[in-house]
Amino acid sequence: MFTYLIVALQAFCIYHVIKNRNQYFWIFIIIFIPAIGSIIYLITQVYNKRDASIIKENLTSVLIPTKKVKDLEKKLQFAETFQNRLDLADAFFEIKDYQNAIIHYEVALKDESQNNYFILEKLVAAYYNL
C-alpha cells in the first residue's frame, strides 16, 4: 500500500514538472530518490510563498472581517480613486454593512466617466438588503 502511495506521488510530481516546464533534472531526482525527492520537489517547487500569503490573507479576512475594510479605507485616504471607492463599498457589502456600502456606491455613481450599470446593480441589492 505504501509503495502505491509513493508511485502516485512520483507520478504527480513528474506530471507537475512537465506541465510547468521546470528543469528536467527534477525528474531524475524524483525517480531515483523516490519519497525524499518527491517531498523536496513539493516543498521547493509546488508550495511557494505567494500561495502562502494568499491563504494567510484570506484566513485573516475570515477571522477579522473588518480588517479588509480598514485596509481599504486607508487605501482610499491615500488615493481617492473610483476603483478604491468601489472596492471599499464592495467590502462593506460583503460584511453586510449596507448603510456604508450605499454611501460609497452613491459617491462612485457620481463619476460620469465609468460604467454605472454594475454600481446600480450593487446599489439596488444594498437597498434591498437594507
Rank of each mutant, 00 (worst) to 15 (best):
I64N: 10
Y47M: 05
V62W: 02
A79E: 13
N22H: 14
D90E: 12
Y4F: 11
K68G: 01
N22L: 13
A91K: 00
Y41I: 07
Y117K: 15
F28W: 05
I119N: 06
I103Q: 03
E80I: 01
A11I: 05
Y47D: 04
L63N: 05
K75G: 00
A8Y: 07
I39T: 08
K19L: 10
N48C: 08
Y117E: 15
S38W: 01
D51S: 07
L59E: 08
F92L: 05
Y128V: 13
E112R: 10
A79N: 11
N100C: 04
K19R: 10
F2D: 15
I30M: 08
T81A: 11
T60V: 13
I29H: 05
Y128Q: 11
R21K: 15
A52F: 04
H104P: 02
E121D: 15
I36C: 05
N22T: 08
I40M: 01
K68Y: 01
F2P: 07
A125F: 05
N129V: 06
A91F: 06
M1I: 11
I6C: 13
I64G: 02
N84K: 00
I39K: 05
V17A: 03
I36A: 09
E73Q: 07
I31M: 12
I55D: 04
Y24N: 11
I18K: 06
I36P: 03
E121L: 14
K68P: 00
T60E: 12
V62E: 12
S53R: 06
I39S: 02
L9P: 00
R21C: 09
L76A: 01
K122F: 11
I40K: 00
T44M: 01
K96F: 00
L123Q: 07
G37F: 02
Q77P: 00
M1G: 13
S38E: 06
A126G: 06
L72T: 00
N22P: 03
L123N: 08
I40D: 00
T66S: 10
L72G: 02
Q77E: 10
N22Y: 10
A35V: 13
K68C: 03
D51F: 01
V69Q: 04
S38Q: 04
L59C: 07
H16S: 12
I95P: 00
L76N: 05
A108M: 09
Y41A: 03
I31V: 14
A11W: 01
L109K: 15
Q45N: 11
I103V: 13
K75W: 06
V46T: 13
L5R: 11
N129S: 14
Y127L: 11
Q77N: 09
V107Q: 12
E112T: 12
F82R: 06
Y117P: 02
L9W: 05
I54L: 12
K74D: 07
Y127T: 10
F25L: 09
H16C: 06
